[in-house]
């Protein structure tokens, strides 16, 4: 079927952030073409630099779908619908890694990084922010007092770079991102050392705004969930080192909800 016939009508708008999918323009373009063919209608990807921007667009109805972190999903759950959860190493789960420069052989846990420089990826990221915030609760302190200085890099990959270059003494990073980097860019990850791996959390999901058309929701879900069944889809998934997508359930993100509640409860003035 010629492509031109298939891309008629209102486009489906999907939001992405570099927090997690970093600088993969060609992949995004290929994925878009794949989805257009599968859905038989135009697909438009919007990329924004932070989860906050993407969530704003989604909540304002300017996007239909977005690939976001479990943390914003848990926060805005009432206005969102879970579309699909990626399957990584057979499970829709991932971990957060605490990393330090490879030259630092002394650090055994987060507690050893007191009064050090620390890198987060995004304030709306689970693995890149919330996990550490939750751990700091256990030490009865907040990041502003525990660390000497913290900063956001806006992407998991850049947390790895900041720690590798020594700009930060430690950082928290999406374990999936670190693993993928370790596979394709070992020269970068080799300059860092993973101090600890967190428990598992629900993998950053694809969500839809609550008002999205049911038919479109079903079509998109169908296209995503069956990606692992055709060669082109498998090739695209392989580029992301993912096994596929699954329906997933809201309960996958219970761990995140628990941490979110704990952090909110403690600080009063909650992080955004």
């Amino acid at each position: 079927m010629p492509l031109a016939w298939s891309v008629q009508g209102e486009p489906i708008r999907i939001g992405l952030t570099p927090v997690f999918l970093d600088d993969q323009t060609s992949f995004v373009e290929d994925w878009r073409a794949y989805l257009e063919r599968r859905l038989g209608r135009p697909v438009a990807f919007s990329q924004r630099s932070s989860y906050r921007d993407i969530m704003d667009l989604l909540l304002q109805g300017k996007l239909d779908f977005a690939w976001v972190c479990g943390y914003p999903y848990a926060r805005y759950e009432s206005e969102l619908r879970l579309a699909a959860v990626p399957v990584y190493q057979g499970q829709p789960l991932y971990r957060a890694y605490l990393i330090v420069p490879s030259g630092d052989t002394a650090t055994r846990s987060l507690a050893d990084l007191r009064n050090k420089l620390f890198a987060y990826s995004d304030a709306d990221s689970n693995s890149g922010y919330l996990v550490v915030q939750y751990q700091l609760l256990g030490m009865e302190t907040r990041s502003g007092e525990f660390f000497r200085r913290t900063f956001f890099t806006g992407a998991h990959r850049k947390v790895v770079e900041a720690v590798a270059a020594g700009v930060a003494d430690g950082g928290t990073v999406d374990g999936y991102v670190w693993d993928v980097l370790n596979e394709f860019h070992p020269e970068l990850t080799s300059r860092t050392r993973v101090v600890s791996r967190s428990e598992t959390y629900g993998f950053p999901p694809l969500v839809a705004r609550r008002g999205v058309d049911d038919r479109i929701m079903r079509e998109v879900q169908g296209a995503l969930l069956s990606m692992d069944r055709d060669a082109e889809g498998v090739a695209l998934l392989k580029r992301l080192s993912l096994d596929g997508f699954t329906q997933g359930s809201s309960s996958l993100f219970d761990g995140i909800r628990r941490m979110m509640a704990a952090v909110r409860g403690s600080s009063g003035a909650a992080q955004p």
């Binding site: 900063f151 900041a162 270059a165 700009v167």
Partner: peptide, 19 residues
């Protein structure tokens, strides 16, 4: 904006070989 990482990226891009 106290965006220290962006400052780092800017100065890093000035002489990419450095460091």
């Amino acid at each position: 904006h106290d965006d220290v990482w962006q400052v780092y990226e800017v100065i890093q891009s000035a002489y990419p070989a450095a460091g």
